[in-house]
Amino acid sequence: MLELRSLSKQLGLFTIADLNLRLNHGEYFVLLGPSGVGKTVLIEMVAGFITPDAGRILCEGQDITNSPPEARDFAVVYQDYALFPHLAVAANIAYGLRARGVQSKQAAARVRALAEKLNIAALLNRRVGGLSGGEQQRVALARALAPRPRLLLLDEPLAAVDIGLRARLRHELRCIHQQTGTTFLHVTHDPDDALYLADRVGVMLEGSIRQVATPQELFRAPSDAAVAEFLGMRNIMTVDSASEGVCQVGRVEIHAALADESTSYVWIKPEEILLSRQPFDSSARNQFRCVVAGWENSGPLLAVRISSGDLTLTALVTYESFSELGIDAGTELYCTFKSSAVHCF
């Protein structure tokens, strides 16, 4: 549906280099990347506000690299929703219809139908000034969808709302996508958005797309350590060699239930690492002597950095265990974790 071919742009601090991407008809594509990676620049290139330095943008086989925004038939929803403050809700939603020459009567009918679908019919005569975050998002979506665009571009639409509302709006986004069947391109820094919303996810790091996969594939098998770290995986280790059930990381041998010859990285959730003063017998297959390198607050828990030979790991402990174990820099401890806690990719 949409194809980006070797797209490049240098703009201030942002660099996008040789970016390739292909979107399928009707899919919900989430482009995931940390802030400052140039996601908004990419959205604005696709929308036609920024001209790429090199490369081409194709939509349904047609080259639109140099088409003006109004000729592309795309719609943008921004993080702050960018509603027109001088217009009532109904006039906001009707804007794209009127711009395309739809008669006011037909436009009003379409506005009403959309507003009912999105549950904002009661707001149509209101000004946008007093709307809540959720109402604003629905009005912005209705306005974007009213002219039936070929592609909906969403720039961090959930970043500005608080956590409770975010989950609800996320759910609404998915419902709206399913109802309309429009192709969505949603950029975000939040892996949860990708996990919950995406048909496919692209991970964008340092100006290029590192991996494109379904959310399940992505979280099961990130393409490299940087992608894994961005997805929230911790204690990622590069495996030197691996066989059935065992991985060699430097001079340390780690038991990993699901390891095989193809394993190139392993990671362990910090909360699955046990720390103790003495070694103990248990079903856990991995136990090492280690030294505390440092520690810091991590919300309700403490993150303790430990090193054991070539390994450096972070373990989460409660304040209570922290004082019972007498943890300080240089303290010698044992760390223990099950082979099933070692994730492989």
Binding site: R72, V76, Y95, R143
Partner: peptide
């Protein structure tokens, strides 16, 4: 805000 003008353009307005 320039964003409002951009939104207008992407909605099909010259």
């Amino acid at each position: 805000p320039e964003r409002l003008e951009k939104v207008g353009r992407s909605l099909g307005a010259s």
